[in-house]
Design a protein around this nucleic acid. Structure first.
Length: 557
RNA sequence: GGCUCAGUAGCUCAGUGGUAGAGCAGGGGACUCAUAAGCCCUUGGUCACGUGUUCAAAUCACGUCUGAGCCA
């Protein structure tokens, strides 16, 4: 079995926030790292989603050509994800040639099998902007309540749904121009209604999906699928290979999921691997990660595209959907700049702190809250006190009493056997949770594993044994140093940078680093006489003053 | 307006028919190797409210209230 993993494609228009990270890329990365460690064949693919009006608008604001804008933003996002330790096998772009080619291919397949229809639709055209405007890019006075900044899709004041032609004194959000007119043009529609039964059959067969995923899929199916436009009058995007559609492109929702396939193709071409077998092989288990707003696209629209293509592309075996991570009661929001963005996060604390904290409070079963106090609490109590301090107390004690080598003498006894049993049980639990992608439970189990070491050392009290029975103390220390290796390996999917620091401190060989966590529960592998170093404390605590400062700076209350 | 989800300990959240749970916070204790960390013990709940189904309800049904979100 090979494991294909994708996380929802981050949109190109700006740096993402913690809410984006926790719901897609981070859990996918933890899962990918875990499976690789288990010796599985893994391919983890992601890409930036680059087409659509918001990208064009953002480029205008930045006074850049849209292609240039996207290239810069792509590089920025890619750098940040690397700093967060996201281990993509390939991080592509939907603007890449492979995606143009495959999008046109999917379209042609759909057209050939009768799932595409041409229709005439009316849209607002801005003469000064020289472009069609999506409904929400037109503002004006609401005919119902008189609110002057009502959007063309809905009035935010009275919540009535509008169409842009309802607005009094409509103008372009982009330029403020009032020089608007209604123009009709031809567009292509994907006949989702004709694919509805096939999609439902597929959804019904997915008995192991999380409740949230199934609920959203069924809701869409029960309401009845409508055909959806897949083209737009824009220049930035994948051109439409059909007569009379010159100058039009595919709508972003159509070409974005194809980015999973096309980025895999780009990976294959750049590494000389057989990319197609990952999408058409029989031995593939495919998992998708995303936040709940993306579930309709991945449970309905994208599967319909694949089914309608009449080609054997791999469909998701498991779709892990996440709820929202809220920031003090409201949503994180890119457009209203609310919450903590990834570049800011890295200025505040190292990546591992965020990785751990976010996975420990991942919004798996319902929306969950981010607060600075909770961040402080998890970092201080769990990372610094439970794990970091354990490493520090062992290595410092060993250095001062025995020197910088694993001490010799004595033989493991009953307490060591008991500890090993506890570790084996907890590691099996942890592996189970990770296999099931239960990330909060996984971090709880990881904490229990760290606690087991603190319990062991407190019961054995090598600081007392050292005075009466040096050999016994040496046994405890050897066991604890092996425990540190187990901790590094078991924690590595969550906190890879800290794990690396521990590998280096223990001066592990490549083989000793690349062990499975199950094999690392043997607490006698690192034998007497091995050298080690004492690293600086693994995690720095956040004090109350710092938290108050962050709350003030980021508006948490 | 329709729909979905949520309401469980001071806080954050687990828990889908069988004696209410975890972490943190609070209280007490023994220890001292360590980033005053760790370990042991412990206080704390009318499971939003009401009615019903059941031998048995946090859990199922209906209704109400509150909050969040989605859709038209």
């Amino acid at each position: 079995m090979r494991y294909l993993i994708t996380s929802a494609l981050p949109y190109i228009n700006g740096i993402k926030h913690l809410g984006n990270l926790v719901g897609s890329m981070l859990p996918a990365d933890v899962y990918a790292r875990f499976l690789r460690q288990e010796g599985e064949d893994v391919l983890y693919i992601c890409a930036t989603d680059e087409h659509g009006t918001p990208a064009e608008i953002a480029a205008l604001e930045a006074e850049l050509d849209v292609a240039e804008f996207c290239t810069r933003q792509y590089q920025k996002q890619k750098d940040i994800y690397e700093q967060f330790g996201l281990s993509f096998d390939y991080f592509g772009r939907t603007s890449a040639p492979e995606n143009h080619e495959l999008t046109q291919h999917f379209y042609q397949q759909l057209a050939e099998h009768g799932f595409i229809e041409e229709r005439e639709i009316s849209q607002i055209y801005s003469l000064d902007d020289e472009r069609f405007l999506p409904d929400r890019y037109v503002t004006g006075t609401c005919p119902h309540c008189g609110y002057e900044k009502a959007r063309g899709d809905q009035c935010e004041n009275c919540t009535k749904v509008l169409s842009p032609t309802d607005l009094i004194d409509p103008k372009s959000t982009i330029s403020g121009s009032t020089n608007l007119e209604v123009r009709s043009s031809k567009h292509l529609f994907l006949l989702l209604d004709k694919l509805s039964d096939e999609v439902r059959t597929w959804v019904d067969a997915q008995t192991h999906w999380p409740k949230l995923t199934t609920a959203i899929a069924n809701k869409w199916l029960d309401e009845g699928l409508q055909s959806r436009g897949i083209t737009r009058d824009l220049s930035w995007g994948v051109s439409v290979p059909a007569e009379g559609f010159e100058g039009k492109v595919f709508y972003v929702w159509f070409d974005a999921p194809i980015g999973y396939v096309s980025a895999t193709k780009a990976w294959g071409e750049s590494t000389g691997n057989d990319w197609e077998s990952w999408w058409k092989g029989e031995d593939i288990h495919y998992t998708q990660f995303m936040a709940k707003d993306n579930l309709p696209f991945h449970t309905i629209m994208w599967p319909a595209t694949i089914l309608g293509s009449r080609e054997p592309w791999k469909m998701a075996d498991y779709i892990k959907g996440f709820n929202w991570l809220n920031y003090y009661g409201g949503k994180f929001s890119t457009s209203s700049k609310r919450g903590v963005f990834l570049d800011q996060a890295l200025d505040i604390a190292p990546a591992d702190y965020w990785r751990y904290m976010l996975m420990a409070s991942a919004p798996e079963s319902s929306d969950s809250a981010f607060t600075w106090e909770q961040f402080q609490n998890r970092v201080n109590k769990e990372l610094a006190d439970n794990l970091g301090n354990f490493v520090n107390r062992i290595l410092k004690f060993t250095k001062s009493k025995f020197g910088l080598e694993v001490p010799e003498g004595g033989t493991p006894g009953e307490a060591e056997a008991e500890l090993e049993t506890t570790c084996k049980d907890l590691v099996e639990k942890l592996r189970g949770h990770l296999r099931q992608q239960e990330f909060r439970r996984a971090t709880e189990t990881l904490n229990a594993l760290w606690t087991a070491g603190n319990q062991y050392i407190d019961v054995r009290a090598p600081w007392s044994l050292f005075k009466t029975n040096k050999d016994e103390a040496a046994v405890v220390i050897r066991t604890c140093i092996n425990l540190i290796r187990l901790y590094a390996i078991a924690s590595a999917p969550f906190i890879p940078h800290a794990a690396e620091t521990l590998y280096d401190a223990l001066q592990l060989t490549d083989d000793e680093r690349n062990s499975t966590m199950a094999a690392a529960t043997d607490l006698t592998i690192l034998a007497a006489g091995r050298p080690f170093a004492v690293p600086a404390p693994l995690f720095q605590k956040l004090d109350d003053d710092r938290v108050a400062e962050l709350k003030a700076q980021y508006g948490g209350d």
